[in-house]
Design a protein around this nucleic acid. Structure first.
Lengths: 159, 159
DNA sequence: ACTATCAGTTCCTAATTGGAACTTACTTCT
DNA sequence: AGAAGTAAGTTCCAATTAGGAACTGATAGT
């Protein structure tokens, strides 16, 4: 199977990755959350080649994560802004960054600290169940298959 | 800059993506959380070519996300298991899957429902501040730069 | 007229991927 | 004993993608 066809699977994770799972794309989104909006700014900060950046921005725009907004006429220039759909990816970015802070930082410590404005403390991101409010770990989750794809998604014990 | 060099940046997100940001790698981890452990099972479920799978499993193992455990001798066979470091990626997977459920599902609805055992309700993942317990959105976060990399990480207003 | 800005596109070479077959070390079936 | 099966890779080749640098086009500033 080719990587470009993974969006044809029913799995929501596979479909998400079809939009944001390419090399460089999550780094583009990191910069979006830092306020970067323009092509050349992304290019200089990331060091990615211009045609790869062009391709990734197009995929993000087509996927609904970013929108292209004109910021001037004559000459016409566009910038890229996060949509609501894009801003909803913040928990993914926050947890990935926190994971890197925990396991991959060097002696100087994490390069950025995310301070929660409301309480003034460094964000300690937790996965919380919106229904009962408890923190959630992998073992706390039981998977239920949508009958529409019964038996096609979960591994069998046999392998 | 080449993709293989992004782990040399101080950014924790870049370093995380150096381990898990490759195409296919997050789908390998999805299957790990579903209980898949063996090479051929990953290969059949993902449809990825065997040498790409081999490369990704090696990167995950070298990165400390998975560990190779012998499950039989004669002939010697190994399986891949999540480490504690790997299980700590669960919030990333859960939020990505939920995002796909919300924006990318088709008429039949999300293919899998993650039920929180403790409360019996479908997990509604939230990003929570571990300090004050409030839900967190992008606008609630203020970034503080580690002085060691002062001025090198955040974009300037000038561009 | 000359230079700069910005958002790309084009060109070429080098690296990576997709697909299929092959390898190694056993075990089980006939 | 010989043939087929299992598991975890490795090897080979053609096709796609990425990296690097230069180029384009519309316009503004000097």
């Amino acid at each position: 199977m080719r990587w470009q066809d993974i969006d044809q699977q029913p799995c929501s994770l596979a479909r998400s990755l079809a939009i944001i799972g390419d090399n460089w794309t999550l780094l583009v989104l990191r910069d979006c959350f830092l306020g970067v909006r323009r092509f050349d700014d992304f290019q200089q900060r990331l060091g990615v080649t211009r045609h790869v950046l062009s391709d990734r921005l197009r995929k993000l725009t087509d996927g609904g994560v970013l929108e292209k907004v004109a910021y001037q006429e004559r000459p016409l220039r566009h910038e890229y802004r996060l949509t609501t759909m894009g801003r909803d990816l913040y928990p993914v970015i926050a947890h990935l960054a926190q994971w890197g802070d925990k396991y991959l930082a060097d002696e100087a410590g994490p390069p950025l600290v995310r301070v929660h404005r409301q309480c003034g403390e460094p964000l300690e991101a937790k996965l919380q169940c919106g229904h009962c409010g408890e923190n959630v770990e992998p073992k706390d989750i039981r998977l239920e298959e949508n009958p529409h794809w019964a038996g096609q998604l979960l591994p069998t014990k046999a392998g």
